[in-house]
C-alpha cells in the first residue's frame, strides 16, 4: 500500500452537521414518566411520614417551618428535573453514517459524540426493569483506552437496539477486513 498524503479541502470533508438525527421512540417518554412518578411517590411518602411524626410528637414551630420549606424546595427541584428530563427526550437523537455512529443529547449542556465504527471494541445491550416493561433497551459502545462507556444510546426499542448492535458489529468486521 503506497502512502499518500494529499491536501484536503476542509470544505469538502463530510460534515457532521448535515446528518438527520433519529429521535428516541415514544416509549422512552413513557419510561421517563414512570421513573419521575416513582420519584414523586417516594418524595410524597417521605413528606407524609415527616408530617405524621410532626403531628404525633409536637415539634417546635421553627422545625416545622424548616421541614415545610425543605419539602417545598424538593418538590420544586423535582418539577424542574422532570421538565428537563422530558425536554432531554426531545433533544436526544442518534445518527448512522456509513462509517460512524453519532449521538446528541443535553438541553442546557449540549453534547455531540461521534464514534467511528473501526474504533469500536465491543458493544453491549442492557435493559433495566422499567425499560423491559416498555420493551426498551440501552446500547453501549466501548473503545480502547479507559474502561468507561464511550457512547450510550438510551432508550431504544429492544429490537432496534439489537438491530443497531448487529449493524455496528457487521460494520466493524467489514471495516477491519478491508
Amino acid at each position: 500500500m503506497a502512502f499518500t498524503n494529499q491536501t484536503l479541502n476542509p470544505d469538502d470533508l463530510p460534515r457532521m452537521q448535515a446528518v438527520d438525527w433519529i429521535p428516541m421512540p415514544p416509549a422512552h417518554r413513557r419510561e421517563i414518566r414512570i421513573e419521575v412518578s416513582i420519584l414523586l411517590a417516594l418524595l410524597l411518602l417521605a413528606g407524609a411520614g415527616a408530617a405524621t411524626i410532626c403531628w404525633l410528637a409536637p415539634a417546635p414551630t421553627g422545625l416545622r417551618i424548616v421541614l415545610a420549606v425543605i419539602f417545598t424546595l424538593l418538590l420544586l427541584l423535582w418539577a424542574s428535573l422532570t421538565w428537563l428530563a422530558l425536554q432531554r427526550v426531545r433533544r436526544k437523537g442518534y445518527a448512522l453514517r456509513e462509517h460512524d455512529l453519532a449521538f446528541r443529547s443535553g438541553v442546557i449542556f449540549r453534547k455531540q459524540v461521534v464514534l467511528p465504527f473501526n474504533r469500536i471494541q465491543h458493544v453491549e445491550v442492557s435493559s433495566g426493569p422499567i425499560q423491559r416493561r416498555f420493551g426498551l433497551a440501552t446500547l453501549k459502545c466501548f473503545t480502547a483506552g479507559g474502561t468507561d462507556v464511550d457512547l450510550s444510546i438510551g432508550s431504544l426499542l429492544q429490537q432496534d437496539a439489537k438491530r443497531l448492535r448487529e449493524l455496528v458489529l457487521s460494520r466493524c468486521a467489514h471495516l477491519q477486513d478491508r
Binding site: 443535553g106 449540549r110 453534547k111 455531540q112 464514534l115 473503545t143 483506552g145 464511550d150
Partner: peptide, 28 residues
C-alpha cells in the same frame, strides 16, 4: 488514531458561538 470526538456547549458558550472540543485518544 483518534477514538472518539465530543463537542459540548454550555448555554453561555452557545450564545457566543463557542464550544468545547474533547478528543479521545486511546492513551488519554
Amino acid at each position: 488514531k483518534v477514538q472518539r470526538i465530543d463537542i459540548t456547549q454550555t448555554p453561555w458558550q452557545a450564545r457566543r458561538n463557542l464550544a468545547k472540543l474533547t478528543i479521545h485518544l486511546a492513551s488519554h
